[in-house]
């Protein structure tokens, strides 16, 4: 924010642009983390559901750790851990990494639930028609399980989008961090937080709307 205005000044139109850019960063880190986390979460969920007990015990415990340790602590730990390993990471990369892991740990449970929602009798019926394990997975378990747990996945995705605000503690300028910067300068927390809230809503709304549409279509 190098400009010729006084350090303390009111909310300016171009501040809105600054916040919009920051919202773009929130969107970017959220989309990246949610998609990576979902892919890995589905793989983990499948392993939790169909792996042997060693896999289930180890993976289950690891994912439990990521699910239960506060995201803030994970972010700070990882951000400081990588440089120690001689591999310094940008706040963005570290944030995306941690958020993805966190998403994966949540999605794993959702995915496992989705697979389990398709009962053994249904899967036996599919196999009895000559479908292979993967055909059963692709054409029976996936569509039925997806419909069963899609609302839960949307919940996870919206949650992660909001939790991405925590990446601000690493110094990454996303929506929350941008708001803090502006609040410090303008001393107008109400306006700015309201605008930030509106941005979060705008980011979430398409997904909730789209999922609502999908659910309606599936219900018919």
């Amino acid at each position: 924010m190098s400009n010729n205005m006084s350090f303390f000044s009111g909310f300016q139109p171009h501040d809105l642009l600054f916040m919009a850019e920051a919202a773009g960063q929130t969107l970017l880190i959220s989309v990246l983390s949610i998609s990576t986390g979902t892919v890995f979460g589905i793989i983990f969920g499948w392993m939790l559901q169909s792996g042997n007990w060693v896999v289930r015990a180890i993976l289950g415990t690891v994912l439990d750790v990521f699910r239960s340790v506060p995201l803030l602590i994970q972010l700070v730990l990882f951000f400081n851990f990588f440089p120690i390993m001689g591999w310094p990471l940008e706040p963005f990369a570290a944030g995306t990494f941690v958020l993805s892991l966190y998403t994966a740990s949540l999605v794993a449970q959702v995915a496992r639930g989705g697979i389990e929602a398709v009962g053994k009798p249904m899967r036996r019926a599919a196999r009895s028609l000559g479908m292979s394990y993967w055909q059963d997975m692709r054409y029976v378990v996936w569509p039925i399980g997806l419909r069963a747990v899609f609302p839960a996945w949307v919940g996870v995705a919206l949650g992660v989008m909001k939790d991405s605000a925590l990446v601000s503690v690493l110094g990454y300028v996303e929506l929350l961090r941008a708001s803090q910067i502006l609040i410090t300068r303008t001393q107008e927390p109400f306006i700015i937080l309201a605008v930030a809230g509106a941005f979060y809503f705008v980011l979430s709304y398409p997904l909730s709307k789209y999922s609502q549409k999908l659910e309606e279509r599936w219900a018919s």
């Binding site: 036996r124 019926a125 039925i144």
Partner: peptide, 10 residues
């Protein structure tokens, strides 16, 4: 054919 008919609901 099973006791439960297991139609694919989708």
């Amino acid at each position: 054919v099973f006791q439960q008919w297991n139609s694919f609901p989708h």
